[in-house]
Design a protein around this nucleic acid. Structure first.
Length: 840
RNA sequence: GCGGACGUGGCGGAAUGGUAGACGCUGGAGACUUAAAAUCUUCUGCCCAUUGGGCGUGCGGGUUCAAGUCCCGCCGUCCGCACCA
């Protein structure tokens, strides 16, 4: 063995050994307890980036740790392989999306394998292959049969650049999440999954997810957006009394019903559209109302626009009370009923609208009944007691709310209702590179599911991308099929599924992948739910909500007895790097920078000064990426892995730095040198043995809590302690334990060192060391001595020293004597084995 | 606007209400070397100083023998949502 650890040789050697031994193959029939560790599978964009490396290293440490603890571990990897970039590549580079994707997968698989992840490659899957998406089509048919798929003509978010529909979740500040283009509204017939059927369950289930970040649970809760209130109908003044429902509204504040001064409907409301048909000025107003953008800034400053239709409705509690009907730009068509009644006194938005259009502002809630006549100078949204509200007067807000609902229900003009912000999930995409929706449209039979014996519906290969839009639409033959129901001529659905459908069940397919069905229930249930799921917080809503929905849908259909797919969730921080900007405003890659004497940055090519920019997430646009591959060449897998675990807490951002990777590489060599020290020593080193036990406890606890930075710090401490210790049997044992503790993070080093010390077998198969709780405590303790809470001295005493003795020892200290200046202490607090505080 | 998180040395960060700054990075000094790299030793919160002392966890209050940690009020940074009736 050499005096330096050589990753160029060792990495490959051990990766091969693990492969030969099938060390990380997950056996579904193993009698051992199961542990399912999963990282969010990557989109095969081309090459692995540092974010992937960090994500997968964390999961790998946990997977290896669990394995050493005696679990049968499932730690799989696959590819979220459908999506727009492949089609963009097809258009730009004239390559087929499939060829482009599969080539990327090959590259990225090879890159991942270089890092030595303990993955079960036998379960690898790619969502773009028929043996995956065919099963997805079967599941879609199951959902159709269960009534969880609907087809609706609806106004959709249309991305004019990608030429496709976007889900609400994919519209960010009014722009497409991928293209960045301003999203347009368009009416189309679309397939929807009825996620709203599960709104209550999905909300409820969050309560059971104790091992999820609060932040993510809260985001999902807000996204589902439950609110309770009253839904009821207004009758137009021109309609006949009795049961006519002209304008339906929803309110969470029925208690303010006597404060209503107008009714507002959305520009997209049927009544508005009807009026527009006959009156140009209405049509003109609607066009103007819709023109406003939906970006954050635009909404902030957006003027409230209203148009008085001249129509009037009748107040439900008073036949003689008329309210004007306005069309208003702030009323959303797709929330509630697309109409509301305005209570300017107690709603900020209504107040603004009423002041602008000089509508009455009434007070119907006050702190006490005495405040009934207090003028309203701004919308008062706080609860209180009802005033100026007839039979409600004097009731607290909550009672008044209940009373109005009760009366509405008794009289039959309204009902208490729970409203959700969550909408059904539109899954149709006008794209080629996605899972074909297994439906055939027949003029006489309507949409019919593709018979299961005709699955998978495979994407045709002969497509062209020279013009925008969906190539499936213009394929000469693919869509022409016979109706499975009547045999007549019919047309295959040419929309494909949103790629989030692909990622909504891949974790189930990883657990069980039979050829003839999506998964084997019994086998899947052995592994599920995923014990620990790790990924970026950017999926806090979209992917995680869809996957939860999909799992619950399977559960409701009786196909799986798992309600929540991910028991534990961890959202890791990003990998960041400084940015560099040249004098003329170009972003420069770290490779193009040279550090001169005195820390001055210059551009390598020109020698010109470079401005140091903010530390930001690695991105191509800021050119601050560091490609993992050259780093692996230079430092080896373990140094890179170790750096990913060091310093920053995993949930926070990690700044890539040269110093950091150097430090990690240095540690790898330090451990190697220790492992090369002679064995067979005799004698006990109790202090070192204690340190070992404490470190075993600390590292285990840290990994368990995914606090890798702390486990790294504890291992640095142990390493230093061993380096300082004299040779002894305890020291030999300490080195052996150190290797075991380092193994999940730096597996190649650990294996190589393990072998060099002639240990049996591979360290990958070794057991995690245990510790003796009795060894965690020292015989001697350092006791802090404070005067008035300020530290003045310390003393060393045997552990278990009595309160009296500790107090006496403390008072005898010269520094304490000096502090007291001859006076008696007023009070002495003793915390045994920790501290003495003298109150002077 | 609503909701949430965070604020500790030059930097990343540690700290069951009980010795603030573990561990790492950076930097200084020294050893080894013809030299360099590597490695090792040692120092490194700030201020005054000879022993020693004072000040320190965004700011202002409070609770406590004791507060980075708990409570109240500010300030700042970051994240999520977006006219949600």
């Amino acid at each position: 063995m050499t005096d330096r650890f050589d990753p160029a040789v060792a990495d490959r050697r051990w990766q091969q050994r693990w492969e030969e031994a099938q060390s990380f193959r997950a056996d579904s029939n193993s009698p051992k307890p199961k542990s399912y560790v999963l990282e969010m599978f990557p989109y095969p964009s081309g090459r692995i980036h540092m974010g992937h490396v960090r994500n997968y290293t964390m999961g790998d440490v946990l997977a290896r740790f669990r394995r050493m603890q005696g679990f049968e571990v499932l730690h799989p990897m696959g590819w979220d392989a459908f999506g727009m970039p492949a089609e963009n590549a097809a258009m730009e580079k004239k390559v087929h999306p499939g060829a482009w994707t599969r080539e990327n997968i090959a590259t990225m698989r090879r890159q991942l394998q270089r890092i030595g992840f303990a993955l079960d490659w036998s379960r690898e899957l790619a969502t773009c292959e028929p043996d995956y998406y065919g099963h997805e089509q079967a599941l879609f048919l199951d959902l159709m049969e269960a009534g969880l798929v609907t087809r609706k003509e609806s106004e959709v978010n249309w991305d004019p650049v990608d030429m496709t529909v976007l889900a609400n979740e994919q519209v960010i500040d009014g722009r497409g999440w991928r293209s960045g283009a301003v999203v347009e509204r368009k009416k189309l017939s679309q397939w929807f999954l009825k996620i709203t059927d599960f709104a209550e369950e999905l909300l409820d289930g969050l309560g059971s997810l104790d091992n999820w970040p609060d932040k993510v649970r809260l985001m999902q809760e807000n996204w589902i957006g439950k609110s309770q209130g009253l839904q009821f109908c207004f009758r137009l003044a021109t309609s006949m009394p009795g049961g006519t429902c002209d304008i339906e509204v929803f309110t969470t504040r029925p208690d303010t019903i006597f404060g209503a001064s107008f009714v507002a409907i959305s520009p997209g409301h049927p009544i508005a559209e009807e009026l527009a048909a006959g009156r140009p000025e209405v049509a003109e107003f609607i066009a103007r109302a819709r023109a406003g953008g939906t970006s954050a800034a635009e909404i902030e400053t957006a003027e409230k626009l209203g148009f008085d239709t001249g129509l009037e409705v009748v107040h439900p509690f008073d036949d003689n009370w008329r309210l004007p009907v306005w069309i208003a730009n702030f009323v959303l068509m797709d929330y509630g009923t697309g109409a509301l009644y305005g209570v300017p006194g107690h709603d900020i938005r209504d107040y603004e609208f009423a002041r602008k259009y000089r509508l009455p502002v009434l007070r119907v809630v006050a702190d006490t009944t005495a405040g009934a006549s207090a003028p309203v100078t701004e919308a008062d949204t706080a609860p209180g007691v009802a005033v100026n509200s007839r039979f409600l007067d004097g009731m607290p807000t909550s009672d008044a709310t209940a009373e109005v609902i009760r009366r509405a229900e008794t009289a039959g003009w309204g009902t208490g209702k729970t409203q959700y912000r969550l909408r059904d999930w539109g899954v149709s995409r006008q794209r080629y590179w996605g899972t074909p929706i297994p439906v055939i449209h027949c003029d006489s039979c309507g949409p019919v599911g593709v018979p299961r014996d005709q699955l998978p519906v495979v994407l045709p290969d002969d497509v062209s991308f020279d013009i925008p839009g969906n190539p499936l639409d213009r394929h000469p033959t693919w869509s022409k099929v016979d109706c499975p129901s009547c045999g007549g001529p019919a047309r295959r659905e040419t929309d494909t599924l949103d790629t989030f459908v692909d990622s909504s069940w891949y974790f189930i397919r990883f657990a069980s992948q039979p050829g003839n069905q999506p998964f084997d229930r019994a086998e899947a249930e052995k592994w599920l739910p995923v014990g620990q799921y790790i990924g970026g917080v950017e999926h806090a809503i979209l992917h995680l909500l869809y996957a939860r929905f999909w799992t619950r849908a399977l559960e409701r259909m009786g196909k799986l007895s798992v309600k929540e797919p991910f028991e534990g969730l961890f959202t890791q921080g990003m990998v960041t790097h400084e940015t560099y900007e040249s004098a003329d405003g170009r972003w420069l890659n770290p490779d193009e920078i040279e550090i001169r004497e005195g820390g001055v940055l210059v551009e390598r090519a020109t020698g010109a000064n470079v401005r140091r920019g903010r530390v930001e997430k690695m991105s191509k646009s800021k050119k601050n990426t560091v490609d993992p591959e050259p780093i692996l060449d230079r430092y080896g897998a373990d140094a890179v892995r170790w750096f990913m675990l060091s310093d920053s807490p995993p949930e926070r951002d990690l700044e890539w730095s040269e110093g950091g990777i150097e430090g990690a590489a240095r540690f790898v060599q330090r451990v190697w040198r220790l492992a090369q020290s002679p064995t067979g020593n005799e004698g006990e080193d109790k202090a070192l043995a204690r340190k070992v036990h404490r470190t075993v406890a600390a590292v285990g606890e840290a990994i368990e809590g995914l606090q890798f930075n702390k486990s790294v710090a504890a291992l640095y401490e142990l390493t230093s302690a061993i380096e300082r210790a004299q040779p002894s049997a305890s020291r030999d044992e300490a080195i052996r334990t150190l290797l075991l503790l380092v193994a999940p993070g730096a597996p190649h080093l650990a294996e190589e060192a393990w072998a060099s010390r002639s240990e049996d077998g591979m360290i990958a198969d070794a057991g995690w060391p245990s510790f003796d709780p009795a060894m965690l405590i020292d015989d001697e303790v350092t006791i802090a001595v404070q005067v008035n809470g300020k530290l003045r001295d310390t003393l060393v005493a045997p552990r278990g020293t009595s309160r009296e003795d500790a107090e006496a020892l403390a008072l005898a200290l010269p520094k304490i004597q000096a502090q007291l200046g001859g006076n008696d202490p007023r009070k002495v607090i003793v915390v045994p084995d920790r501290l003495v505080n003298i109150v002077a």
